[in-house]
Write a protein that binds this DNA or RNA. Sequence first.
RNA 1: GCCCACGUAGCUCAGUCGGUAGAGCGCUUCCUUGGUAAGGAAGAGGUUCAUCGGUUCGAAUCCGAUCGUGGGCUCCA
Length: 636
Amino acid sequence: MIKITLPDGKIVESEGPMSGMDVAKGISEGFARNCVAMELDGRLTDLSTPIDTDTSVVFITTRDEQGLHIMRHSAAHVMAEAILNLYPQAKLTIGPVIEDGFYYDIDMPPISEDDFSKIEEEVNKVIKAKKPFVRKAMTKAEAMDFYKDNPFKTELISELEDGTITIYEQGGFSDLCRGPHVPDTGLVKALKLMKVSGAYWRGDSERPMLQRLYGTAFFDKKELKNYLYVLEEAKKRDHRKLGTALDLFSFHEEAAGMPFFHARGMELWNALLAYWREEHKRAGYVETKTPIMLNKSLWERSGHWENYRENMYTSLIEDFDYAIKPMNCPGGMLLYKTRHHSYNDLPIRAGEIGLVHRHELSGVLSGLFRVRAFHQDDAHIFMTPDMIEDEIIGVLQLVEKMYNTFGLGFHLELSTRPEKSIGTDEQWEKATAGLKSALDKSGREYKINEGDGAFYGPKIDIHIKDALGRTWQCGTIQLDMNLPERFDLTYVGADNQRHRPVMIHRVIYGSIERFLGILIEHYAGKFPLWLAPCQAVILAMNDDVAGYAKEVKARLEEAGMRMEIDLRAESINKKVRDAQLSKIPLMLTVGAKEEANKTLAVRTLDGKVKYGVTLEGLLEKVIPHVQSRNPDLVEF
RNA sequence: GCCCACGUAGCUCAGUCGGUAGAGCGCUUCCUUGGUAAGGAAGAGGUUCAUCGGUUCGAAUCCGAUCGUGGGCUCCA
């Protein structure tokens, strides 16, 4: 008698071996249809695996994250079969699951997206055939022989440990794979090819170029449709397009990767920084500024000349080497050293909106997201070792407050000591423990990336989530045990002895350019009133009211609003349309009635119009709305 | 840096087989003076099609190089 324990504690008894599928069917046919795999005593496996001893089973269904992952892996096999059916000479290499789907690297002649419909047709045939996935075990030698015509697979196999190697078959198709897989190809309900690009075998440009086919798959067509909708929406929100359309910034060949900000873009920029300064002052920061060009001796001392030179712009001036700073920290070291510090002075929280330049490879530039010149909202905090925890908590609180203002969720990741690192075990333990206990006290969950820290110290990365659910790493808090040493920073302790301060680097926006790009996409260009480059536009009904229109504009500007005025000889419909397309939060129409009553007709971006609003009435709503940095539309 | 694609008016884009450059929007001027998503007309705008070179009687179009942009790879103190 075999006893199989279900997650709810129920026990299924059986005379002989049962497969997971049998057990699932015993629960209900409907349930079985939604099962894709199972865990036997915590070990992930196929539903077809026979259960022949007492064990506990947990079913993985189409509703689990893991179920989706498994199905997408199966989808990669389905796509691979379709490719081989159409291109019999193609050689498969690897096909992993990635964030939004999967890809398969295949050695074959280049194909284009025009070939997709043909491939998808073939894919659908494979899906419709509901071919069962069959696991086959073989020895390494057998596997090498099986793949004797595929040098990529044999290379992979030769790197595997000796022992059982598994291959999954679906009909006549087979692929080297650890599994598990869904029961049959019919579970892959909605598969779509997304794009194709070249990729080197094992990422090595010396080795053959393969075709990387990206695809995605969902358990039902509706989910696929929704995913495609989000992609579409993201395309519409592309900050590069909106940046041009809204006249915020531009790029020019004369300075590749270095953005030019237009007048409207600078209004946004300034609003963002005004907020930053306000919060940082409140949190006890001072603001400093260091030069962007410093000579070689500094970079040698900081270690950048040796380790980061490839990325630095350098210049020879009167026989001396200079470099444009790629980071602000070395300059910050010099600032610290301009006077002696007592432990009573610490912590020192020195912010700097620093303009840095990094020579990024030409192929990686991308709008505001990846540039060669950008501003960091940097700050260096100098402190005694026992201040680490409190200071980190302080930064985390600031992070939370500021991201909340933008309606951005976030999560934290802690990176610990890498293999190659400086400093003693004790220093690392103390530093890492400090970050950890600060994280614990913050009450937020965090992920640990073992060995992913910088060589000079552990760090906390902050990943934000935008309105479309995409994540971006923006903030980072890095503990630095290197620079204080190299620059011989000291403070005088209560014992009248010199001590080495602990230093952290931290940014919240990260790169202001990039953060702006993220915000443009997050808000789809419809900025909240406090951020909007132009907060309100006056629409003059006709020439007779131009004088009143100008007077209103002047008065609102005096009250601090960012205003524009539309006096063109166009219809009011046209002016409203243009203002809507420019995503200006408030449209203030003035006509004969408004002039007579000294009022305005206020239209918000949702299309609602409120007539007869006085200037005072408008400002009463607008001023507190802006001051509180309210993310919502103003209601009238 | 590597692979592929692309580069035509301020913006978005058309331009066939190599035959001598177009549209819409925007801009200017005029008419219209309007009530919440496009009122009408005329005109200017390209050093000739990213740049340089080549093939050709002739190149936006074909070839090569360079620069830039996009997607991917790689890199990322």
